[in-house]
Design a protein around this nucleic acid. Structure first.
Length: 424
DNA sequence: GGTCGGGCTATAC
DNA sequence: GTATAGCCCGACC
């Protein structure tokens, strides 16, 4: 039996781990059985992190996974950055408020300059995780150190573990939906899918024989039939000698088919058997032993039971090369991006034009004086409500000065305006 | 100085 | 284009 080459293992892992319908136990078995590539595809890295998150959605390790995920080439889904930012914020905040020592945890996560979560959401961190809300929340946690009132409010806002887990599940759903085809699926599409005619036309006889094995005889005949139809009439040579040779070839092929069994079904069955045996073996082992199998980049992490995978599922168990008629078509590339950084939606970012006011009555620097609008976060709204209850409507200065840790960068009139909006 | 009401601006839909 | 939230300005106490 030919030895499995590292590139083949990479293709298999890219396909199996990145397929959300493959149960966690099977994916972990594959990760344990096959060498993890030294230069994994971005899809494999992303899938590994998603599986790790699904198994352990709210923890310090999950925070690591979320930050690593944000450092990968961006997901094709436009909803992914917001989902990632929300999940990251929810997990970091929950870890801080649920820690036995709030001050130590909040400092380690949100303190300046080295807080783990703060570094990730600040400029220079992960762009996908940065937002005004993240900045504001980081400031609030930092300011809440030593302030029991703020800590109580923050616990009320961020202390729901189920809510944090829900944010992670939402991110998982968005990411899995956009993970795209594996390299094997793309290759399969090229050989038996939409691009098959061109691929087969360009192939020599030896290569076509390999394609025939992969596609199966029936599909191969369909493709070759279409290929024959597309050959320009002017290129056909029609002489008695050519007809004689073609008849001989057809006869030879028919004889071959009658005596040689198509090897693909048997090979596929054997492969399934081997995979099933491996899975059984892995599942029989102590779950922790399997899940803690280290990988080359230590990314596979703890496994989850098969029913713990929070990912969209297909109706039936997927075979490695099951053909998916609804799959999308990708432009084939023979070699992967050397740095693994290519993104399907990477486009140059151009600054959007903004309106500029020019008026002789209004000095240009007036624009700079206007503060940038910053959305009110839940903590500010909640504190404002409590402040109005405590100090009374209209006493904005009192409310502001008694909650400097919460109303960072706000003025008394901002509180008034916000209350006016909240009462509408 | 603090608060109020009206108006302006940026942004989301 | 419209609705809304956030910010600013001038008047008033």
């Amino acid at each position: 039996m030919p030895r499995l080459m590292p590139e083949d293992a990479s293709l298999l892992l890219d396909h199996v781990v990145g397929d959300p319908s493959v149960p966690a136990a099977a994916a972990n078995a594959a990760l344990a059985a096959l060498p993890f590539p030294s230069r994994p595809t971005p899809r494999l890295l992303r899938a590994s992190l998603l599986r790790r998150l699904a198994a352990d959605p709210v923890s310090a390790a999950a925070l690591d996974s979320l930050q690593l995920l944000a450092s990968l080439p961006s997901s094709p889904s436009p909803a992914a950055p917001a989902a990632a930012a929300a999940a990251h914020l929810a997990v970091a905040a929950y870890l801080a408020v649920s820690a036995p020592d709030f001050d130590a945890a909040a400092g380690a996560l949100f303190g300046r300059p080295g807080g783990r979560a703060r570094r990730a959401v600040e400029e220079g961190g992960a762009a996908a995780l940065a937002s005004d809300e993240a900045d504001a929340v980081a400031d609030q946690f930092e300011a809440a150190v030593g302030n029991s009132f703020s800590q109580t409010v923050l616990r009320g806002l961020w202390g729901d573990r189920a809510a944090a887990e829900e944010r992670v599940r939402e991110l998982l759903a968005v990411e899995w939906a956009a993970i795209g085809q594996s390299r094997l699926e793309m290759a399969a599409e090229r050989i038996v899918g939409d691009g098959a005619i061109e691929t087969w036309r360009a192939a020599d006889e030896v290569t076509r024989a390999k394609y025939r094995l992969l596609a199966g005889e029936q599909r191969a005949r369909e493709i070759e039939g279409k290929l024959g139809e597309t050959i320009p009439q002017g290129n056909q040579i029609s002489t008695p000698e050519v007809h004689k040779v073609m008849d001989a070839l057809k006869s030879s092929c028919a004889n071959l088919h009658s005596v040689v069994e198509d090897p693909l079904p048997a090979a596929k069955a054997a492969a399934d058997e081997v995979l099933a045996a491996r899975m059984d073996k892995a599942v029989d082992l102590n779950a922790g032993e399997v899940s803690n199998q280290p990988t080359a980049c230590d990314i596979a992490g703890p496994s989850a039971p098969a029913d713990n995978l929070d990912a969209p599922r297909k109706g039936t168990a997927a075979s490695l090369m099951d053909w998916n008629p609804t799959a999308r078509t990708f432009q084939w590339e023979d070699s992967p991006d050397p740095d693994g950084s290519c993104s399907p939606i990477h486009r140059p970012q151009l600054p959007s034009p903004r309106r500029t006011t020019f008026s002789p009555l209004q000095p240009a620097d007036n624009k700079a004086k206007r503060r940038k609008a910053r959305k009110w976060c839940a903590l500010e709204e909640e504190t404002l409500r409590k402040g109005v209850e405590q100090y009374g409507n209209g006493n904005w200065k009192d409310i502001l000065t008694n909650n400097p840790d919460v109303f960072i960068g706000r003025k008394a009139m901002d509180l008034k305006d916000k209350w006016r909006n909240m009462m509408r």
